[in-house]
Write a protein that binds this DNA or RNA. Structure first.
Lengths: 349, 349
DNA sequence: ATTAAACTATGACATTTATCACATTTAAAA
DNA sequence: TTTTAAATGTGATAAATGTCATAGTTTAAT
């Protein structure tokens, strides 16, 4: 049985959450403020710590800082709870080395799954640290992009985003690269007149944020979660280190970028000369490919998002969807879209 | 005084060309067919060979093949002359190891400059071969993209293209990467209905063809010279070898790709929501930046090419140019366009 | 369960832009 | 230089698409 320390100043939230966690099979310790939390952590060395940020006496950042300074406690997985959704706060937590970051209010299941995956990962990392102490090195043997992803998965920190939350915004500097473990992220740009265009979609197992990988320039686009999404975050500096020791991964990264470039250029061609019908069809197919686990599942995306990928007015998109529906190419079920005739869609116009 | 061997079956062309070359200060040997050419080359070991492709007895490819097989003659720079402009012929020559490839009819000055640069380079390479024989290695010290360009410049073969000639075509496999030493190259895609969109412009000192660098897939776009252009061509396999030994260059290449991607995405945004006026203005500025050595030089590009970059109908572009001219933003001098008010163009709409 | 907010759908209309046809100009070739 | 082909310019027109207004639906929040 794992021991969990919950640091939270709001009594109601603390007791409710503790109960949930106990029911899930954890041995739960609680602390009503940061100072008490640090003391409890040092005395009991829990397997994982869940900690609010806004607290009297000592806030969450302070708790993390103090625990990170001690050899005994620095490896304990640390999950932040916060009502703040501002990106700079999240980044502050990440910079300090938090392992995950949940925004309140959260679902029970989100919390549980975050805790479980962190506990599991921590034990793997303990093994690795042992090996490393024995002189083995784990960064010189990456042979492919997949290895890189595994590396990121093992060495990165998690970040849980709700639908609509931003990973980064156009103009911000970011020092991270991201791997999606669950959900969908869209990258989008906004032009002067406020129109939004989605320039890329990423899904589970995709890497993103590498456009500015080696240069320290600001992001030229924003990245936003289209559904509840879990990311692994790795500092670019660390990644550079890894790349330096692994040519093969460099090549894979170059390929990844090339692919991206090709894809973007194709989108460009279509954007320039494609009719609304064509753009609409292509966009539906693109989403189907990116989002769907099962082939016959209906698409759940707002018309707005679809229009933003297609680069057309929302109303034009809606009209086109209606006519596709009349022609029997798709089925509109409430807000969802079900593809009926893939081939015909692929050969529109 | 350098000795030059000219192999050409057409007597008139041979004698004229020989005279030109003698006046340029070369000691010229001639041969009327491939067989005689090979014999003369072996006996006299000229400093450079200029050879027609279509010849009786033994064609140009055969000559090159035979000379490449001999230790004594394999390092002599070899320039092909050909009436053929088909790309596969050029590639055949390149694959065999020709150092340059001129298509007939050629300008005197083109031929002279091709010869001179090859003779100069050959002496540098002779030095290098000596060093290499002594055990020094020249591929392990590249530190930047600039070094890579220098490497390509030193180790690649030249290719001279006339305005309108293709470097590669959509769908072709290519095993080369290209460095432009003079001129402008456009990369363009064609959609099903035959409309052409220019997706990238490259100028002197730019590297291109790296989109498929590490993967052996066909080109997704065509590349065509917009003016008389000189390229350096390096086989991808050789380049991979180099990249393997030079991390720093990998990083630079990754940056290059990232930049490209950003630029393409910006074009995408504009393509999606920009008005014709905006696209036209942006395109003029883009060309001005890419093509002009001096700031006040007028642009010499066809309306067609401009429209292809902007992704609009040629007539629409022409109309917009007219109105820009009336508004005093540009000056139309015959076919050329002179920018008058850069700032206003940058802030159209 | 009710209400509010957000999203979707549709009509009417204005605007933009492509297309076609043809005149005019420019550059290249004979 | 003259001829010819290619490129540019312009008008008329139709098609495509965006915009605005408004009504109906769905989802989420109280």
């Amino acid at each position: 049985m794992h021991t969990l320390l919950l640091i939270e100043d709001d009594t109601v939230v603390r007791e409710n959450t503790a109960e949930i966690l106990e029911l899930s099979g954890y041995n739960v310790l609680t602390a009503p403020n940061g100072k008490a939390g640090v003391a409890t952590a040092k005395n009991n060395l829990p397997d994982i710590i869940v900690c609010d940020i806004m607290m009297p006496e000592l806030d969450g950042y302070g708790v993390l800082e103090q625990l990170a300074a001690e050899e005994n406690t620095k490896h304990i997985p640390f999950i932040f709870l916060s009502a703040k959704t501002e990106h700079k706060d999240i980044r502050k937590g990440m910079d300090l080395g938090a392992d995950d970051y949940l925004t309140k209010p959260f679902e029970e299941s989100d919390l549980i799954s975050a805790i479980e995956s962190r506990v599991a990962k921590a034990s793997i990392l303990r093994e690795e640290r042992k090996r490393k102490d024995l002189g083995e090195d784990d960064t010189s043997s990456l042979r492919s992009l997949n290895d890189l992803k595994n590396y990121v998965d093992d060495h990165g920190n998690a970040l849980t985003l709700k639908k609509g939350e931003a990973v980064f915004e156009q103009g911000q500097h970011s020092n991270y690269i991201y791997l999606i473990t669950k959900g969908i992220i869209k990258c989008h740009k906004i032009d002067e007149s406020g129109k939004e265009l989605t320039t890329a979609l990423y899904r589970e197992d995709d890497l993103f944020g590498y456009a500015t990988l080696l240069q320290n320039i600001a992001h030229q686009e924003s990245a936003t979660a289209m559904e509840n999404t879990e990311l692994i975050v790795v500092p670019k500096e660390e990644l550079k280190e890894v790349l330096n020791n692994n040519h093969k991964v460099n090549f894979d990264l170059i390929n990844l970028l090339s692919d991206n470039l090709e894809e973007t250029k194709n989108q460009l061609l279509q954007m320039a000369y494609g009719s609304v019908r064509k753009k609409t069809a292509a966009t539906i197919l693109q989403f189907a490919e990116k989002m769907n686990k099962k082939p016959d599942e209906p698409l759940k995306i707002s018309r707005n998002d679809l229009a933003s990928v297609a680069g057309i007015a929302t109303e034009s998109l809606i009209r086109t969807l209606s006519s596709f529906s009349k022609e029997g190419l798709i089925d509109i079920e409430g807000r969802n879209i079900k593809i009926i005739d893939i081939k015909a869609l692929a050969h529109i116009d």
